[in-house]
């Protein structure tokens, strides 16, 4: 094996009752690498990501397959065993930043809670400066003001940055991002994508990025896996897949991807 896999999924099968939602998915994410999980709603991309942390919605269960993270078989762990991974070594960022936060707690306090849980070496007095440092790292201009704010007081783009700061608070090795920029304006989205790329370079973070948007995946990911109907249709280097899509569905997605038609 040339590269060590940080995340390795083999033969993952998820069902709700008799319905097969994810069907024999194999994925590899090398340490420090970035993988885009590309598909439309209902393709199974989000469920695959949630399965990594054992966060499947009620009624959905894993009937087959293994998930290994840094040599540990996550799929064999119970709730207590998964705790150090959730929000710690593996962080999750969602589309709706607003619903990820507690609406009645100040943002600084919420990020401090992650430190309390996953960074025991930082004592009570060390937490506030670390929170401010994290807010600065994600490009928030007035970290003190942000720390004192409630979620509803910030714009969508700022809140998404706070969510990334909260994800980084646990010093994760893997960041799982589920359509985190879909609800944002294009210019805000472009800045968040730049931020994520920069953080990855700086921290050597591995990235699993879930999206329906091929353009976004091409901007942040080195590799891409195309999903439909619970299966991976093809996976490979983004450039390779874009140059020579092996599956007709990938070609269809490429044809529908954003383009700007210009005259002349």
């Amino acid at each position: 094996m040339a590269e060590e896999s940080l995340l390795e999924i083999r033969g993952l099968e998820l069902r709700a009752g008799e319905e097969v939602l994810v069907d024999g998915v194999d994925l590899d994410l090398p340490r420090g690498g970035s993988l885009g999980l590309l598909g439309q709603s209902g393709s199974g991309k989000t469920l695959t990501a949630l399965a990594v942390l054992g966060l499947l919605p009620p009624g959905v269960r894993r009937v087959a397959g293994t998930i290994r993270f840094d040599g540990v078989e996550l799929s064999a762990l119970d709730e207590a065993g998964l705790r150090p991974f959730r929000g710690g070594r593996i962080a999750l960022v969602f589309q709706e930043a607003m619903s990820a936060f507690n609406p009645v707690l100040k943002l600084g306090r919420q990020v401090a809670e992650v430190l309390e849980l996953h960074r025991r070496q930082i004592d009570r007095r060390g937490r506030p400066p670390e929170v401010l440092r994290l807010f600065e790292e994600v490009g928030l201009k007035e970290p003190e003001r942000v720390a004192r704010s409630y979620p509803h007081e910030l714009s969508g783009g700022m809140l998404q940055r706070c969510l990334i700061a909260m994800a980084l608070a646990g010093e994760p090795e893997l960041l799982i991002a589920d359509e985190p920029t879909t609800a944002l304006d294009v210019t805000v989205q472009a800045r968040i994508l730049e931020l994520v790329a920069e953080i990855r370079r700086r921290r050597g973070l591995s990235l699993l990025w879930i999206s329906h948007d091929l353009g976004v995946v091409a901007r942040v990911c080195g590799r891409v896996a195309v999903m439909r109907g619970g299966r991976v249709l093809e996976q490979g280097e983004v450039e390779q897949v874009l140059r020579q899509p092996a599956h007709p569905y990938t070609r269809e997605l490429m044809a529908a991807a954003p383009r700007l038609e210009r005259s002349g």
Partner: peptide, 22 residues
């Protein structure tokens, strides 16, 4: 099509540049 090929305003150009294309 004309505006997207040759935006007159910096702001339009900025919006166009932000579109993630493949």
């Amino acid at each position: 099509a004309e505006m997207f090929s040759a935006p007159k305003q910096e702001y339009t150009r900025c919006l166009l540049d932000a579109v993630p294309l493949i």
